[in-house]
Amino acid sequence: MKNTRSTLMLTALLSSALFTHSAMADDSFDHSGKASKHSALAASEGLATTASVASAVVAVPVVLTGSAVVAGSAVVESAVNESARNLHQASHQSSVASNQPLVITETIITADPAPNQVVTTKTKVITTTTNTKR
């Protein structure tokens, strides 16, 4: 009897723990690397006709400077340095007045898959091509 009671208590505790675990599990996972996302969006018939889908290469904060905002470039040094510099120059030409509603593109922008996924895909393509040539 004592054994049964202890066992039931243990069962209840373990069950409770696993539900606790499930409830507490954050959903802070990255959804940006889903290769099918871009194509799923592109194939959506319900999207407004003006909406297009595009992958982002780099994003540069638009910086407030006095009464106007311009793009800054320091955030994206290293691998995307050149892209950022070009973007920085382009953004300087189109500053936006502060305290005003901001312009938002109609384009549906997605992040590209993680670099390792891109490299894996490219490797597979190269392998396939090589095999075909043989």
Binding site: A59, V62, L102
Partner: peptide, 17 residues
């Protein structure tokens, strides 16, 4: 963050990163 976003097609768009 409100940003200038360079797209893979070469365009630049304004939106939130």
């Amino acid at each position: 963050i409100y940003s200038s976003i360079q797209l893979s097609n070469g365009d630049t768009a304004k939106g939130y990163a």
